[in-house]
Structure formats: C-alpha cells, structure tokens
Design a protein around this nucleic acid. Structure first.
Length: 450
DNA sequence: TTTTGAGTTGTTCGA
DNA sequence: GTCGAACAACTCAAA
C-alpha cells in the first residue's frame, strides 16, 4: 500500500483538480490536509475567516468527513504529517505568489531531505503565470496585448473527478472558533454552491452582463470571485462553458485580468507592496494623525459621500463589494484623501472574502495610477457623478446607509443639497472639486522634479 | 534598430 | 441637453 498526501491550499474542490488526479494515480490511498497558517489567519478579518472555515467545512463534507486540518507553519506541519502517515509523495497545486513560493520551496526542500516526493500539478489559473511572453521574451506589462496572447495560447479542458478516491483519516487539530458575524447571511461556500452560482449566472445573468454589471444595486455580476479565490471553482471550468456572445466574451476578459495580474505579480513580486511607477509613488501622500482620522472615516463609511459610504459599509457587512464601487472608493482614498494605495489595499485584504493578493494590489495600483498599465493621472472619479450614473435610483445607497433611507430617488447622492438633510448622516469630510485640483497639483509638481 | 500605433472602467469645459 | 476635445507624456509591443 502506498499513501500520498494531498495538500489543499486555495483549491478547495474535488472536480477539475489536477493535483488530486495525480495523487490518485500515484498512490493507493490519500490523506487530504489543509494547514491553517497563522501568518495568513492573523491577517484576516472576521468575515474572511468565517468564509474560509465555511469553505473547509464544505470540502470536508465532500470528502465524507476525512479532511485533516492542522494548525501551524506549513514548513513544520506538512513534512511532519507526511512522515506521520508514511506518505511517499506530497501533491499540491502550484502557488505563484511571493509568500507561497518561498513557503513551498522551504516545504519542498524539507520533504526532499526526507526522501518524500514533492509534486506540483496545475495552478489556480487558466494559464500559469510565467507562461506567456512577448515576441521579445519579456513579460507583458499591458493588458490588451496580454489578452490577445492569452486567447491564442488557450487553456486545457477541465479534468474529471477521479471515479474512486480512498481517503485515509488522520487526527486533526481543532480549528479556531467560527467568528460571529451579526445577523448577516453570507453566501454559501464550497464546491456545490459554486456550481449552483455558475449555473445561475450562465442561465440568467450573463446575457445582460455587459450592460448590467456596472449597476451595484442589481445582482448582475457573477458573484464567483470568492469561489475563484478559494478554488471552489477553477477558471477552466467557467471558460469551458462560455460561448461567444458579448456578455460571455466580456466575462472571459475578466478572467483574463485575473491571470494577467497573477503574471505581473509573478514577475514583479515586490509589486504587492511597492508602486510599479516610481514617479507617481514619489508624490507627496498625507500621513500622520489627520490622515489616520480620514482613513478611519473612509474605512467605516463616514465620508459624507453616499456611494463611498455605501460601498465601505457593504464591505464591512458582507465581506464583499461590487466592482464598480471598489473603483469609486479606491479613487476617493487616493485622489480625494491623498492616502497611499497600500492602506486601502490592506483594508480590502482584511475584509474581502474574495481578497486575492494579485488582483487586489494591482487593482489598487491601477486606480492610484502607479501600475504599469494604470489609469492616467487625470482620471479622477467624481463620487457624485458616479453615484448618479451607476446607481440612478439610489437603491444601492439606501440599502447600506440607513440614515438616507428616507431620501427618495437619486437625490440621495447629494444629501447636502436637501432642505432638511438627515441629521445623523455626516457632511462631506472633504470637498471633491478642491481635492481633485489638489491631486492634479501634486502630480504636476512631481512630474516637474522627476 | 527604429518606427509606429496604442493604452479597461473619467471629468470638465466650451461650443 | 449633447458632443468633442483637452487633460501629458511615456512606455509598451510588434512590425
């Protein structure tokens, strides 16, 4: 009898799991483990923690209760468990992030020393980072040409779930207690729920996706981001079911962005922390007590700009925010409050159930104008205009900002113009027109002294 | 090597 | 109300 260890990380599913297929092929039975790494756990807020625990529950159920959970540094835990169960090999999907690469190298080294095979099969991406290059063998820094190559390159079809998997039980450490999350109902986690969401999206949303996806009041987006983050679903499984209608093509492009940002992070790991564009990064950003104060207002949804506050409160309540609103609140932090994008990015990573380092950090860099392929410096979102255009009924704002629930229609986007503004809703903490000018001034100053 | 065309998501202003 | 231009300059990717 040979045993293999299957190490789950962010691929919490049994279908279309190449590492699982490889493990089954190479051994008679499997021990499936998830190692809860304190480094990642400590950085996560309550909703994110809760979503991960829910995902693990769902995975455990699909394994008939045989998921082994261990707490601790994987560099210690994984080799010691492999030894404990007498595994001849450890199977996993490749992680291309900066932290994951170092961790896996250390784990792989320890295993090899112990004479245990370390086998990486597949990754969370349609096309692995580090696969696609320009004609001059550099990595792509601009999305559009990357996306052309990405489509031309293509991706493999999903692989079937093995007909028979023999899970071998092993003792588990007890997972931390489930954080209590008010009375908010979180989306159901796990592979089955993800498949249902995908079915629902393809059946009734993708047709209008192109047009409706920008309206945060409508439930018009796929809602698959957390499934992709934790691997309840692999992008291959989605791409295999997408046709050629406009909505389907646009959605495929969103999956391409995910691969693009992972590719950039793979080639420039420091972009998780540092701006890609030094010139914009050298702009003067606000720091100190005043900055801390406005950051607090922003993060708690008390800026006095309704669409910004609605978004930030949706994040706190649900661990998720509509993509259009993510751009609006990010623009507000960087261009209206003059705070560094890293502060906002960190807050997002703590609270988003779908928070993915590559997409999150580069999305922020795009807004801040510090990315290689970023928005031009003069593209500054006007929170009022954006609110009126994309939430024309005001329904989104009223759903998340109860103080404004009594204000009808789109007037809700400018409560300061009301004859009788709600007393419990804050006045704008800054004047957008002024801060826009200030941002442009700071950029001008910076570009002159490059 | 040089040249050429292009680059997710916006706003404001003036005609 | 609608429409086009300006808002810069730079870097990227391919020919």
């Amino acid at each position: 009898m040979t045993t293999a260890l299957l190490w789950f990380r962010r691929d919490l599913r049994l279908s279309d799991n190449p590492a699982l297929v490889e493990a089954v092929r190479s051994a008679d039975d499997l021990v499936g483990v998830f190692c809860l790494d304190p480094t990642l756990w400590e950085a996560a807020g309550a909703i994110r923690r809760r979503y991960l625990l829910d995902s693990l529950d769902a995975l455990d159920e699909s394994m008939d209760g045989n998921l082994v959970t261990r707490l601790g540094d994987p560099v210690e835990v994984v080799p010691s468990l492999a030894d404990e169960v007498g595994a001849a090999s450890v199977h996993l999907a490749e992680d291309f992030g900066p932290y994951g690469r170092d961790r896996d190298e250390a784990v792989g080294g320890a295993l090899e020393e112990a004479g245990i095979e370390f086998v990486r099969t597949g990754s969370p991406y349609a096309i692995d980072p580090g696969t696609i290059f320009t004609k001059s063998d550099t990595h792509y820094k601009v999305f559009t040409p990357f996306s052309r190559s990405w489509r031309e390159h293509g991706w493999p079809d999903p692989v079937a779930k093995p007909a028979s998997i023999i899970w071998r039980p092993a003792p588990s450490d007890e997972l931390p207690e489930r954080p209590h999350i008010g009375d908010m109902e979180l989306a159901r986690a796990g592979e089955d729920a993800a498949k249902n969401r995908l079915d629902h999206f393809l059946r009734s949303k993708v047709e209008d996706y192109e047009e409706a996806r920008d309206r945060p009041a409508d439930d018009a987006t796929s809602r698959l981001s957390a499934d992709l983050k934790w691997g309840a679903l692999h992008p291959r499984q989605i791409l295999a079911r997408l046709g050629r209608t406009q909505g389907e093509k646009t959605f495929a492009t969103e999956l391409c962005w995910r691969d693009f940002y992972a590719d950039v992070l793979f080639h420039v790991p420091e972009s998780a922390r540092e701006s890609l564009n030094e010139r914009v990064a050298s702009m003067p950003w606000d720091t100190g007590d005043g900055a801390d104060e406005v950051f607090e207002d922003w993060s708690q949804g008390r800026t006095g700009y309704p669409i910004v506050d609605a978004g930030m409160r949706q994040l706190l309540a649900e661990g998720w925010m509509h993509n259009r609103v993510r751009m609006i609140v990010a623009s507000f932090l960087v261009k209206d409050l003059h705070l560094e994008w890293q502060r906002g990015a960190r807050w997002f990573m703590q609270h988003l159930v779908d928070g993915d380092l590559a997409s999150n950090q580069h999305g922020w860099q795009w807004t801040a104008g510090t990315g290689t392929d970023a928005a031009p410096y003069f593209r500054i979102f006007n929170p009022t205009t954006q609110g009126e255009r994309f939430d024309p009924t005001g329904d989104y704002v009223r759903r998340y900002v109860p103080e404004l629930a009594g204000v009808a229609g789109k007037a809700v986007h400018q409560p300061w113009t009301l004859d009788d503004p709600p007393a419990d809703y804050p006045a704008p903490i800054v004047d957008h027109a002024e801060e826009r000018e200030e941002s442009l001034r700071r950029y001008e100053h910076t570009s002159g002294t490059r």
